[in-house]
Design a binder for these strands. Structure first.
Length: 293
DNA sequence: CACTTGACCTGTCCGC
DNA sequence: TGCGGACAGGTCAAGT
């Protein structure tokens, strides 16, 4: 599921409620979702105070008063939903938007009890996890964070940065390259397809064969689609919900993702589905031709 | 080495 | 209706 815009939407939601709260208990019925030693949980997770909610790429990072940080990866089907202990929900949401009316449910893997509410980590496919690591030196010590590429929505993320990272993967397909989290952080299958369409680049084009003009358009497109998606609360293809349990609406505006059989909004040609970088991939075969040297 | 493919899981959908 | 297979927002390890 969750790519950068979805994870950022979750972060923004949690940011409203969690900072300042203290953790009362942590439990799981699927230990692989919470691969933390019990002694460490007791010493540095329980009774800790939540300081802030951060995000790096698709990873949620929650620094605690104990000097440790909670790391959460939602992978394909993870949800992170907060429910206050009293009052009837949050109000303001449309009832039909909620995919998580009664929590915990059968996909709930980890329950974190807080002073004023409960944080549920749900994950149908069990790929995601909640970990705990030392805050000091986290970005240097954590294998994933250490290699993670730059944040594409930061002001200082330049075309030069994008181009020079791509240059290290000249022979691979452009889709595989932008899905590679070491090239840039946060792009997943939805935003790869949408941004490649916007830039009129065929996903199987080799990086070295793509013109500078098109790479520039791709850089702009990646930032454009992900910024727009954050404004729309992300994409809810199946499971995704934000911290309040509500869906995002970006897919209503998607041009090719899951639109096979429909018409290209640019030329009217039929959108087709192919395979690229081992993933289902949506293109307009008329607008997106494989680049050749 | 750089790059691609399977594995991790559950659930849903589609064809026979 | 039942059953097998393909497929689903991600990332690693193990292949080629």
């Amino acid at each position: 599921m969750p790519e950068l815009p979805e994870v950022e939407t979750v972060r923004l939601g949690l940011q409203e409620f969690l900072p300042g709260q203290t953790i009362k208990s942590v439990s799981t019925d699927w230990p692989k979702s919470l691969p933390i030693d019990q002694a460490l949980i007791k010493a540095n997770f329980v009774s800790a105070k939540i300081e802030s909610i951060q995000r790096r790429g698709k990873l949620i990072i929650i620094p605690l008063s104990t000097g440790y940080s909670i790391l959460i990866h939602l992978k394909m089907t993870g949800q992170l939903v907060y429910r206050p202990s009293h009052g009837r929900g949050f109000g303001g949401g449309h009832p039909n938007d909620s995919l998580v009316d009664n929590l915990p449910d059968k996909s709930t893997r980890v329950i974190i009890e807080l002073t004023k509410g409960t944080l549920f980590f749900n994950d149908q496919r069990k790929f995601g996890w909640v970990k705990l690591e030392k805050t000091e030196g986290l970005y240097e010590n954590n294998a994933f964070l250490k290699k993670l590429g730059p944040e594409p929505l930061e002001d200082n993320y330049s075309f030069d940065l994008f181009k020079s990272a791509l240059k290290r993967h000249p022979k691979t397909s452009i889709k595989a390259a932008i899905l590679n989290q070491e090239v840039l952080a946060g792009v997943g299958n939805i935003y790869a397809d949408e941004s490649l369409f916007d830039a009129r680049i065929h996903p199987l084009s080799k990086v070295e064969n793509i013109s500078m003009i098109k790479l520039r358009r791709l850089y702009e497109a990646i930032r454009g689609v992900m910024s727009l998606s954050i404004k729309l609360g992300g994409s809810s293809d199946r499971n995704y919900v934000d911290a309040k349990g509500n869906r995002g609406s970006y897919l209503k505006f998607a041009k090719v993702f899951r639109k096979e059989g429909g018409k290209c909004p640019n030329c009217g040609h039929e959108i087709i589905k192919i395979r690229a970088a081992g993933r289902g991939t949506h293109i307009c075969p008329h607008c997106q031709k494989i680049a050749k040297k």
